[in-house]
Nucleic acid binder design. Structure first.
Length: 487
RNA sequence: GUCCCCAUCGUCUAGUCUGGCCUAGGACACCAGCCUUUCACGCUGGCGACACGGGUUCAAAUCCCGUUGGGGACGCCA
């Protein structure tokens, strides 16, 4: 595919399949995806599984799964094929090996036979002496004979890049002019002694082979960018544009990592966050809409997103605002659009009591109150069977006014046909109020307590209509029993 | 330790490039009130920041320098 260059924007998201997708990675993926969208470009998904020990196919599968859930569709990737053919680095080993050989031949790289122990010892010594713990170039000076000798001894052989002494300058899409001195890094490994490439080598070789035009990634990669540019130079290739995104930090201001609670996308999904809310929230960590809009649809984001409005300062991940954002998106959806995604979050007992229409009605009632779909579990309490009566509700049922109110309501219910609607229930309550002379909270609390088991909850008439006459009569009967036994 | 990056309300941010319109705007959270039979939703209001010190300038949140603070990177991890 080299040679097929054109002006299309090509970006990539290149996770390593060593764990779950987490908000930091997701944010990087989102920015790349949005950038591709905005420029009618190509979004490439590449799997960086060069670490044999830690990479797993399960992680890869869950990564793709989370990406799909976020609706970040890729144009080229491990499952789609594409111009580059292979999008897993483990399937591209021949590329890295042959490139490493070319570097050796051209004098850009050399063999290294240092052992882990030696490396470790020198690193500690350097640290103790207050020097940066970089590779000291021991094997750089090896003669051809010495190299041959070590090979014959069967020593493990790695290939290191001969870092030239120079200053790399480039215009970062987000941070502006960046100058990085190559003497801040030692001769780094290109090919491990097990024949696998390291991250920096594989990433640079692939970004070049896949004709990536813009590399958007977290700021922690700035030192890697230096190494990768050096490789690009050795390749004789022109470098892509780089943009280093500000980091997402945990509440304690350290880099957000797996230890920091529910920061994995999978968990957010399990808890009932909507993908559009997660995307919306994460984009706002570092980017702001030109008109200051906050609640945005994915389409709006795709239309208005631009790197120019991405800031440089790290941002702290705030779950409270994510929750608020999620509530906003839940409320924006029509019940019909929300139902398919919300339905799996109904607890099993509710599912067995109410059919699809029943659950849809419950959702309609709860849509304005919940912050995430996981709240459905708790908010469904009034609809469970049997209804649990909490202590506050119990107190209401033993109040003096409870007995006449409940009796009158039961009487009204007995008189009606079987179709109980919200307006009908409201009328009944009016009638009960008139006949008993009780009004306001004294009128409503006992009824609420009897039919929902709590003094707080969704709109009473709505609950009543969903439950229906027979269930109501039964609940009232039970409540009357409680009122009498305790009074 | 060395190198690099960053710096506006507790948090996300607008404003900074192109100094004056900034007695610094919005959002989350928090507090109060309203709405409501309740909780929530919603609405209204309140609290709350230009890290500090020097310059430059008629004028600085905005430009420059320093200090402090925070973060990241220094792997045969990515």
């Amino acid at each position: 595919m080299p040679g097929a260059s054109s002006n299309v924007v090509r970006v990539r998201f290149a996770p390593s399949p060593t764990g779950f997708l987490h908000v930091g990675g997701a944010r990087t993926a989102i920015f790349n995806w949005l950038f591709a969208r905005r420029h009618q470009g190509v979004f490439v998904l590449r799997i960086e599984d060069t670490d044999v020990e830690r990479s797993t196919r399960e992680s890869e599968a869950s990564l793709l799964d989370d990406l799909r859930w976020l609706r970040l569709d890729w144009d080229e990737g491990p499952d789609t094929g594409g111009a580059a053919g292979r999008y897993r680095q483990s399937e591209r080993l021949d590329e890295y090996r042959s490139q490493a050989q070319k570097f050796m031949a051209a004098g850009f790289a050399y063999s290294c036979f240092c052992t882990d122990e030696q490396l470790q010892a020198r690193k500690e010594a350097a640290r103790a002496a207050g020097r940066p713990p970089q590779y000291d170039g021991t094997c750089r000076a090896l003669t051809e004979d010495e190299v041959e000798g070590r090979r014959k001894e069967g020593l493990p052989e790695a290939i290191r890049f001969k870092v030239p002494d120079e200053v790399i300058r480039f215009e970062d899409l987000i941070r502006g002019d960046v100058a990085l001195a190559s003497n801040t890094v030692g001769d780094f490994v290109l090919l491990r002694s097990n024949g696998r490439p390291t991250y920096n080598f594989a990433a640079a070789v692939d970004d070049h082979a896949m004709e990536i035009t813009h590399v958007l990634r977290g700021e922690e990669h700035l030192p890697n960018t230096l190494r990768q540019v050096l490789i690009y130079n050795a390749l004789g290739a022109s470098i892509p544009r780089f943009g280093h995104l500000p980091l997402i930090l945990a509440e304690d201001r350290s880099k957000l990592s797996k230890r920091h609670g529910a920061a994995s996308i999978g968990e957010l999904r399990a808890q009932g966050f909507l993908p559009e809310a997660v995307v919306n929230y994460l984009v706002l960590l570092g980017w702001s809409h030109p008109q200051g809009k906050e609640v945005l649809s994915v389409d709006e984001l795709g239309k208005d997103f631009a790197l120019e409005r991405v800031g440089k300062a790290a941002a702290i991940y705030d779950r409270k605002k994510l929750l608020w954002m999620n509530g906003q998106h839940i409320r924006r959806k029509s019940v019909d659009a929300l139902f398919p995604v919300a339905d799996p979050y109904f607890p099993d007992d509710i599912r067995s009591i109410y059919d699809e229409n029943g659950r849809r009605e419950i959702l309609r009632l709860l849509q304005d109150t919940i912050e995430n779909l996981g709240d459905l579990e708790a908010e469904c309490a009034p609809f469970r069977s049997p209804v649990q009566i909490d202590s506050e509700a119990r107190e209401e049922l033993t109040a003096a006014d409870a007995r006449p109110v409940l009796a009158a309501l039961a009487e009204e219910l007995e008189k009606m046909g079987d179709e109980l609607t919200e307006p009908l229930f409201k009328d009944m309550m009016k009638t009960v109020g008139r006949s008993t002379g009780i009004k306001g909270k004294q009128l409503f609390f006992p009824v609420r307590a009897a039919i929902t088991g709590a003094v707080h909850g969704p709109e009473l008439a709505g609950v009543a209509a969903i439950k229906g006459r027979d269930a109501l009569l039964e609940l009232i009967g039970r409540a009357q029993g409680i009122g009498e036994s305790t009074s």
